[in-house]
């Protein structure tokens, strides 16, 4: 565990807390893509199956349980409790366009052709693109609430910090996982446009409105 890894995990944790607080406090999930949230729930449940087969550390297990349970809670809030506020008219990204290629890629390019390893690989690939329905929704409506943009910033920052963690681990531990690195870079690149808007608008106290 190095400082980049810890900062990345904390950023990830913060993103989820911001999202849940936004939904809970405003009693609304307006502006949030349910499709991205379903993909994230799929990411965590397929990646953390080793929770039942392998104990790594208390930190590791607690975080895994947190990510799985909060992603399920988010889906419950969006599709059951605050269903009326869910903006499904703007949440139209076809997730099959992501799930099908990611499944094929996971079956073809993996470290080991075993069920757990293929599911882990699928989850890494899926996570890299899971935010696309949300970004598509923001671009479709042309804006995002400030709290939603804080959520997106923390969520994007988390994988960017993991890249620094991987650089650190490569130099100091000789460790690298090419699948995680390539997917992590793709994931971070997808946020670049949003990062630019966040820094130039939200930080300066303006709402996140896309240029017409």
């Amino acid at each position: 565990m190095n400082v980049f890894r810890l900062a990345g995990d904390l950023s990830h944790l913060l993103a989820i807390i911001i999202l849940l607080l936004k939904i809970w406090k405003t009693r609304s999930c307006a502006g949030i893509s349910g499709r991205s949230q379903i993909l994230f729930a799929l990411v965590y449940t397929t990646r953390y199956l080793d929770l039942f087969t392998n104990f790594i550390s208390l930190y590791n297990s607690v975080m895994k349980v947190f990510f799985i349970s909060t992603s399920c809670a988010t889906i419950y809030l969006m599709y059951v409790k605050f269903k009326a506020t869910y903006d499904h008219n703007h949440d139209t990204f076809r997730i099959g366009f992501l799930l099908i290629p990611v499944t094929i890629l996971g079956l073809l390019i993996n470290h080991d052709f075993t069920p757990l390893e293929v599911l882990w690989t699928f989850s890494i690939y899926l996570e890299s693109v899971a935010i696309l329905p949300q970004l598509f929704m923001v671009s479709k409506t042309g804006d995002a609430e400030t709290i939603t943009s804080h959520y997106l910033f923390c969520l994007g920052l988390y994988r960017a910090l993991y890249i620094f963690n991987w650089i650190y681990r490569y130099y100091f531990e000789g460790f690298y996982d090419l699948i995680a690195i390539v997917a992590g870079v793709v994931q971070t690149v997808l946020y670049c446009d949003f990062f630019y808007l966040y820094v130039t608008r939200v930080i300066k106290g303006k709402a996140l409105k896309l240029p017409a």
Binding site: D9, H12, N60, N165, F175
Partner: peptide, 10 residues
């Protein structure tokens, strides 16, 4: 290559 048991990252 790294085996599954070495995956400590989240």
């Amino acid at each position: 290559l790294e085996s599954f048991k070495q995956k400590d990252e989240l």
